[in-house]
Design a protein around this nucleic acid. Structure first.
Length: 121
RNA sequence: GAAGUCGGGUGGGUGGUCGCUGGUUCGCAAGAAUCAGAGGAAAGUCCGGACUCCUAGAGCAGGGUGCUGGGUAACGCCCAGGCGGAGCGAUCCGACACCGGCGCAACAGAAAGCACACCGCCGAUGGCCCGUGAGGGAUCAGGCAAGGUUGAAAAGGUGGGGUAAGAGCCCACCGCGGUCGUGGCGACACGGCUGGCCGGCAAGCGUCACUCGGAGCAAGACCAAAUAGGAGGGCGGAGGAGCGGGACACCGGUGCCGCUCCUCACGGUCGGCUCGGCCGUGGCCCUCGGGUAGGUCGCUUGAGGCCUGCAGCAAUGCAGGUCCCAGAGAAAUGACUACCACCGUUCUUCUGUGAAGAAGGGCGGAACAGAAUCCGGCUUACAGUCCGUCUUCCACA
RNA sequence: CGGGGCGUAGCGCAGACUGGUAGCGCACUGCGUUCGGGACGCAGGGGUCGGAGGUUCAAAUCCUCUCGCCCCGA
């Protein structure tokens, strides 16, 4: 199996079977700019993935979108309870938004809709 | 100076904070240090290769290309030249071989291929009528293809002679075909002689010349879970019947082992359900090879970049020197922020009659677009901006 | 990444190989029939043939480029 090259790649959700599992069983929290799906995994550490469809633009736009959201999740990794699979689905409106609006929305979802650290099963 | 033309370049910069990927070194490890990290199109996938695997050979079929010569690993690409077309010009554009064969040309038009006669012109010649006659008239036979009409296209064009009217019927020039000569490697050009001279379409079928085996890095090689299935082996197996085996001194029965059959059980199927029919399995474990998810390799040193010289009109080639320059794997090469440049707009102040210019401030914008095995091209997209070549026009000297 | 296919009326499709009239079914409009509706009968409207360029006298059709959609391959 995939031996992790660093601690960074441990926290990436990139396996297509796992992503499909989150789509199927995950819970859903959304706002105007994006949607987050989340599901408890059995690994004990958090994994984050970003899924951007072709409708949002060309390869350049899609890559930038993924980078911005991945970094957003990265900075708040310590605040998220361990053992959660997160899947971010950006919406078209988020492409043109400035970074601070994105950060506010993300923080709001994180505080109000997602499980907190004390909820770890 | 304006308008244009062709060719080439660039594709914001410098800090700060937080991060990503790979190599190297150090470290038991966690990690640390250091170096490197998207494009001219990375795109579309339209061609050509390299490289892999498959394919016994050849022919046919099928595909591609299509003026000539050169360049190249190769090309449908590039360079040079010819011819035709567009433009005052610099320049630009061109699938630009062949109509012998089979086909096609709607509608219109008289006629669209062994050309034709609607309107028209003539009616010299032979008839008819008038007239003594010279002659005149209409048009029957007949002649004509100049003019009109149609069409994308009507059997060379213009002028003259000729004629009853006409016609390459004859002549001159132009065009076309044939042939000879000269120049050129050649496409072709020029000139002489000669023939009175029946088209178009091959991005229709085809012919000719050259050329092409098929698939593609998701190629291919290796390692290899779970589940199902395959082969082999071991242990086990509910009830009954038959046959065989061997031990018990011998025979028979019971029990044991093996095989076959039936019942039974389970699963599937037909069926709304039961009964019933059909099919499959008979429980567990081990080994083997194939192989999926997943992983490793392929994976970046190459028809490579830069500089200099030589050969060539050029594309390009040769020689020498020098450099190592992304290798990810749902996919790194960034995000945020400050300042400076650039553009647009607006405000204030100053100069100025005005047009406008200078300084400072605010707001907004900044293209097309992301390597995915690697090269050579083509095509398409592209805000700005810089450099050079040539052409035309205007002004001044 | 590679391979293949399709864009024609509001919808589903012919026509394309062999170039000259764009057609079929449903839907729509009007009239008839019926007391009224449906069904049926008659008549009719509706098309940049995805876009641009080229070949040709003439292009939905042939050629090139381009846009969008769909399918297949580890």
């Amino acid at each position: 199996m995939g031996s992790p090259r660093s601690t960074h790649s441990q926290h990436l959700l990139r396996n297509s079977a796992d992503i499909r599992l989150v789509f199927k069983e995950g819970k859903r929290a959304s706002c105007l700019l994006f949607t987050v799906l989340y599901r408890w995994n059995a690994l004990g550490h958090t994994r984050v993935g970003v899924v951007v469809g072709k409708k949002l633009g060309g390869a350049v736009m899609r890559n930038r979108c993924k980078r911005r959201f991945r970094e957003l999740a990265w900075l708040s990794l310590a605040a998220v309870p361990q053992g959660l699979d997160l899947l971010i689905l950006p919406k078209r409106e988020s492409m043109l938004q400035p970074a601070k609006d994105l950060r506010q929305s993300w923080q709001k979802i994180l505080d109000e809709r997602l499980p907190q650290r004390k909820d770890v099963p």
